[in-house]
């Protein structure tokens, strides 16, 4: 490792530039770090109050740690279990546990202000009777303390909410590349970016180009891009979605794509199609889980009806958007 040239190192691990930049020296790319260091004048070491060997050792230590981080794989989630707490009035929640596995979608429904977001926060926080609800959330049977040593708790969970927007001044292509580079090798970046881009376009129903600025995307386009990105680039196995407006995107296909990537999805929603589409739905009332409804055959039929209706509405929406005059819809002839 240490005898590789600067070029070899930065090609393999582009991120170490973040460390190298800090030295404020012009590295000779065809030499190793050590050889470069030998070229430095005395005051380089004086200024740092470090000897040649100390700087070298520090770099070796940095490389070891950085390499370990880059090669670290994220913990697989086999199950996540929610244990009951109490509602706003102190009444214990009426269930024993809710266990969810990869590929499942759980809808969280209830009046505005009933406590849907609170449940999502308990999951994000991996609550252990240390939140206002007193709920406990256990991932892979492991407590927060144990987990800190393996992977960070926070990186198991991806979040998507109404308030989250793109803020970087970049175009779609640059942005997706930059995200993909966090997790895959250079050779795989392009294919991954293409997949995310094409998925996002198909979800949003509104074309945008790879050159579009991410901050200039419409609400629907940016939600579609966030979801496609989350499904294929982000490695977090659990996705929490808090009432994203559906803004004309094919939200149901979006969910299928997420669970197709073996994610566990919790989604707080008022959307009837989405709520019926979920494997289970948790009903929240007055800060507490009041019911857990599993989709049965009856509901499946209702879902098919609702899907048809929604599909037609989406179609109507696109026709209107593209400037058509509408001569036929629903019972209209």
């Amino acid at each position: 490792m240490m005898n590789k040239t600067i070029r070899e190192l930065t090609e393999q691990y582009p991120y170490i530039n973040i460390y190298l930049d800090d030295f404020d020296i012009n590295f000779d790319e065809n030499r190793s770090f050590e050889e470069n260091l030998k070229q430095q004048p005395d005051h380089f070491f004086e200024q740092r109050k470090m000897s040649f060997k100390e700087v070298l050792d520090e770099f070796e230590d940095y490389l070891d740690k950085a390499k370990a981080i880059l090669e670290e794989s994220i913990e697989n989630v086999d199950d996540i279990t929610i244990y009951p707490g109490k509602g706003k009035d102190g009444v214990p929640e009426p269930y024993e546990e809710i266990t969810v596995h990869p590929g499942e979608i759980i809808a969280i429904v209830g009046e505005t202000g009933s406590g849907k977001s609170r449940l999502l926060e308990d999951i994000e926080w991996q609550a252990e009777k240390d939140t206002p609800t007193g709920r406990t959330v256990i991932i892979n049977g492991m407590s927060k303390k144990e987990r800190r040593k393996t992977s960070g708790r926070q990186r198991l969970i991806a979040q998507l909410s109404q308030n989250m927007n793109f803020v970087l001044d970049m175009n779609v292509d640059e942005f997706l590349k930059m995200h993909a580079e966090c997790f895959v090798s250079q050779g795989e970046v392009e294919v991954l970016v293409k997949k995310v881009y094409e998925t996002a376009i198909s979800l949003s129903g509104e074309e945008f180009s790879l050159n579009s600025s991410i901050t200039g995307l419409s609400g629907g386009q940016s939600r579609a891009l966030m979801i496609a990105d989350c499904a294929y680039i982000s490695r977090a196995p659990i996705v929490l979605i808090d009432e994203i407006e559906n803004a004309g995107i094919d939200i149901q296909r979006a969910m299928k794509i997420l669970v197709g990537s073996e994610k566990i999805v919790f989604i707080a929603t008022h959307d009837p199609v989405l709520a019926l589409f979920a494997n289970k739905r948790i009903v929240i009332r007055n800060g507490a889980v009041s019911k857990i409804i599993e989709r049965n055959e009856e509901e499946e039929k209702a879902l098919h009806e609702a899907e048809k209706l929604y599909g037609r509405l989406l179609y109507l929406r696109n026709r209107i958007r593209s400037g058509e005059k509408i001569s036929q819809f629903g019972g209209m002839a």
């Binding site: 991806a158 989250m164 927007n165 995200h179 966090c182 966030m226 990105d229 989350c230 680039i233 982000s234």
Partner: peptide, 11 residues
């Protein structure tokens, strides 16, 4: 992190 996308947080 509450006002940016998941991707931006990860990067």
């Amino acid at each position: 992190g509450d006002i940016v996308s998941q991707a931006e947080r990860e990067v």
